[in-house]
């Protein structure tokens, strides 16, 4: 399942819907949908705000690898490896002006593996959610969206 889009922040909702539809079509457990949506939303938000600094081309692909669900994101923004971002600043409000690193922290929390590599004039981010495809049948009438 692949989506190529000239993305801006206004399309995050559509991108999350694509993630849900694709995960469902691939037979992923419905309990994984929220985690997948969050990881992809945060990754695309990072690409747009930190990579392009505005709208830009994003390719999103979801595939099954055995019982694992693999999400692959490609962009043409300057190289940025989210795994190398500083750790999340989770201190209480009074101790900081604004929190940082929350998005990457969420991506790491929701996915089992995150791999970044530089490709021709851009980035490829591969995120894997392990063991979510298998006995679970595609759901009918999911809980939201």
């Amino acid at each position: 399942m692949q989506l190529k889009v000239r993305a801006d922040l206004g399309q995050l909702h559509r991108i999350r819907e694509f993630v849900t539809e694709s995960a469902e079509a691939l037979g992923a457990a419905p309990t994984s949908f929220d985690d997948l949506r969050i990881a992809v939303d945060e990754a695309v938000t990072n690409i747009l705000t930190h990579g392009y600094g505005g709208p830009g081309d994003v390719e999103l692909e979801l595939t099954a690898d055995g019982s694992d669900l693999v999400v692959r994101l490609r962009d043409r923004a300057p190289s940025f490896d989210p795994r190398l971002a500083p750790p999340a600043d989770l201190r209480p409000p009074g101790e900081r002006d604004k929190p940082g690193g929350l998005g990457v922290h969420l991506m790491k929390s929701m996915m089992d593996k995150i791999v970044h590599r530089s490709i021709d004039s851009g980035n490829e981010l591969t995120m894997t959610k392990c063991g979510v495809i298998g006995d679970a049948r595609p759901s009918i009438g999911q809980e939201d969206d």
Binding site: D41, K98, P99, G103, H105
Partner: peptide, 16 residues
């Protein structure tokens, strides 16, 4: 129905 890190940054900004 959806809350991401940006939303949490917004909530943090409101506390400030």
């Amino acid at each position: 129905d959806y809350l991401g890190s940006a939303g949490m940054r917004g909530i943090h900004a409101i506390t400030n």
